[in-house]
Amino acid sequence: MALREIGENLYAYTGMYNDELHVKLKKLMPDGDGQLQPVDNKGISLSVQQWETIDGHSQEIDAEISRVTELEATSKKSWRISPNRFLSVTRLQSKYMSVYMTLVNIRVHFMKGAEEPVNPTRFGVAMKIAEWYKLIGMKAGINRDITGGKSKADELMTECISFTISQEVKDMSAKNCHGCQIDHPSQKKYQTSGCLIETCLIEDWAELIETYFDCAVDCIKRKDVLALFIKTWDDGDDEEVDLYRLYRSVLRSSEVLALAKLRQWKHLVE
């Protein structure tokens, strides 16, 4: 699950609800163990169809935001995304000052036969304009989560870890053998490290990775992997990345092992 921060303690992520995949816009706060947990009734869970409906209206919503931004009056325009759920662009005036602000509100309403959203419930989220634009900027990543595709960050972290593991395996296969330390032509004629010891006579790289993989995973330094990731990552990408969480989720994945065996990296040079 990729957490994408929209605003202060407000996150977008995908998850299951009633055995169906939903896009969740929720307030999350750390518990006693430092793990982020949902705050009761602070947010909304959208079906994939509801999320796609919002996405389909995004240009109209942006146009309405532009229209009311400098408006010195209250206004409200709504789009229906389900029988009792609406997205509204609302221009409000502060109760205490003559200041206006615009909110994008996605909320469940009590309908009671009404056609317009006039009875809001506590189930929903009100976003500032900057938060709305940040959410829309994340839609490509959210859509990847829905379809099960890997994000750019996942792919790059997989590459960085497999690359670092590959370097570690090369070093370990040499350091663990006295024969590899001998600088002599008779040693260098062999295909791998030039050694006569059993593990170093492994000529197939994939088999060598299999032999040393678990030990290499334990030996690599996280800071080296993250430094390589940061060096390669495109700062212009709109995807929010939690480096430590991503590192832990990818570290021992089968994709890392498979990529290390192939030694084929799109973004890195060995």
Rank of each mutant, 00 (worst) to 15 (best):
L21V: 05
K24V: 03
M29S: 11
M29E: 14
M29T: 11
P30T: 08
P30W: 11
D31K: 05
D33C: 06
Q35L: 10
Q35G: 02
Q37G: 01
Q37I: 12
P38K: 09
P38Q: 10
P38G: 07
V39N: 03
N41V: 08
N41Y: 12
K42G: 03
L46G: 01
V48K: 05
Q49N: 09
Q49I: 06
Q50M: 14
E52M: 10
D55R: 13
G56C: 07
G56P: 10
S58D: 12
D62N: 12
A63I: 04
T69I: 05
A73P: 01
T74R: 15
S75P: 07
K76A: 06
K77A: 04
K77R: 15
K77G: 01
P83V: 07
L87D: 02
S88G: 07
V89R: 00
T90I: 15
T90L: 06
R91W: 05
Q93C: 13
S94D: 15
S98D: 15
Y100Q: 05
Y100W: 14
M101P: 01
M101A: 15
V108D: 07
K112W: 10
K112C: 06
K112V: 06
E116K: 14
P117Y: 05
R122I: 09
F123V: 13
F123E: 12
F123W: 07
V125H: 01
V125E: 02
A126D: 15
K128G: 14
